[in-house]
Design a protein around this nucleic acid. Structure first.
Lengths: 259, 259
DNA sequence: CGTTTAATTGACATTATTCAACCCGGGTGG
DNA sequence: CCACCCGGGTTGAATAATGTCAATTAAACG
């Protein structure tokens, strides 16, 4: 393995491990397990479809750089984006179990991701309870995001949804270490935002312009400028608790006994 | 353990194991593991709140009889139901990891469920890779339902959403062994349906009446009569593939090596 | 530069919500 | 037994939210 690759690898794993560390003790042994699995770093150009809708899953990926979205195309031409994977997130985890994908997985930006062969990851899971626990945590976390999105789509107005998804993205970017609290690079068009929020492009645009006029946020050229974060969070009814970065203190049992 | 309890236990476990069996070989050893964990069968009256929104999680439950819904109450009085647990489903799985619940878990009917103490389940998971695999499968399955709900809420009309959720419930009931293909007991009010679909009660009512007039389905007094299932599925754009009851044949590696 | 894609805006159509009234059946207390 | 009450359910009319269409401008790109 080339030195450069190893360096990258360490960086990536750190993003993921940092997130998991709030819940599980990440020691050298755990780290070694990750390194053992994450060998093959691949690059994809923006726009690449990793798995087409209805197509066969290949392997699982652990995202190091870039954004990957999971979306469904409907018969009538509409599209719904179900979730957005950021660095440190897994992509196509379902490949462990399912043969075909109900969704399209595509790269919004240039992407670098570790390829985790399904059989190798499966084997590691059957051997390493700690790894299983970590993936359980990852799944639960992802599930929280979906549940919250359901609440948004079901019971929040277009304005609230917009505010909410922005709050969520901001928080997630902060968690993985984006530092500037007022400026965020969000590589998405208004149409893609509309497809996340389940509204039309036109309405998306009007909502964003309104927020800008009101001095809350401005989103232009994939740059989000947060002028009044408090106002944004109130508008969204945002409570970042569902991102779950606090540990349940009485749940220590579920680790390999030696920890 | 009383004999009656043991009988119930076998029944329950079969519901769950039947679902898992499509993916993992369920032999006596696996069965024994389940029995080891499922000891305490509890009953709840309809209306019981198992976990209040914002409250502390207790243990995990495995549902044997009855319906449990997970919902969010918003500041403005609105409610969104995120998912519905049927017999064979787990309830409050997040109790393994998170300390407080973002949602309310409440019983729509009288309920019987096995209490799985979080620490005991956690211990079993750290010992038994097969169990971890099964729970991984359960999570993935649940995640598919949420993803599909997001598509519905985002990009389907009230009419389509209604048809879709009915198709989903019908399919899920069939999977766990409800036999009559034309009549289903669905213990929910129109208001609760509305809170699943993210529409108003009034609109829910009008949509149901329309379906009835058209001879598609009729829903009265918690009884769903399916008159024209084909039409219902077409209206919904329903493809039951996302329920994932087919196994990925080349994913056999992820089992304890001895199988 | 042209060309293409994304963003913007106003006018209008559609969908869904809210409000308000009424119905209907099942308790429940007199 | 009856009157009442109450929680769904049902319906029409008015209102609000959002979608669609179409035309225009701005930005991105070779």
């Amino acid at each position: 393995m080339a030195v450069t690759e190893e360096t990258e690898l360490v960086q990536l794993t750190e993003i993921l491990l940092k997130k998991v560390a709030g819940f599980f003790e990440v020691n050298d042994e755990v780290r070694a397990t990750f390194y053992e699995i994450c060998t093959d770093l691949e690059e994809f150009d923006a726009g690449t479809v990793i798995v087409p809708q209805g197509g066969d899953y290949g392997d699982i990926f652990l995202l190091e750089r870039g954004w990957v979205v999971r979306s469904r195309h409907l018969e009538n031409g509409a599209r719904q984006i179900v979730n957005v994977a950021l660095p440190g997130d897994f992509v196509a985890m379902n490949a462990l179990l399912f043969s075909t994908s109900d969704f399209e997985l595509s790269c919004k930006t240039d992407v670098a991701a570790f390829r985790l062969p399904a059989d190798r990851l499966g084997n590691a899971l059957s051997r390493d309870a700690m790894l299983s626990a970590a993936l359980f945590w990852v799944n639960a976390h992802e599930e929280s995001l979906l549940a919250e999105r359901i609440v948004s789509l079901g019971r929040r107005s277009a304005r609230q949804r917009t505010a909410h998804v922005l709050c969520e993205l901001i928080s997630r970017l902060e968690i993985i270490g984006i530092m500037d609290p007022e400026m965020f690079v969000i590589p998405m068009s208004q149409e893609e935002f509309a497809d996340i929020l389940g509204i039309s492009v036109v309405h998306m645009n009007k909502t964003l312009r309104t927020f800008e006029r009101e001095g809350v946020v401005s989103f232009r050229n994939a740059i989000l400028m947060v002028q009044d974060r408090k106002k944004l969070e109130i508008e969204a009814g945002f409570d970042n608790g569902y991102l779950h970065f606090a540990r349940r203190e009485d749940r220590n049992a579920w680790r390999p006994k030696r920890y």
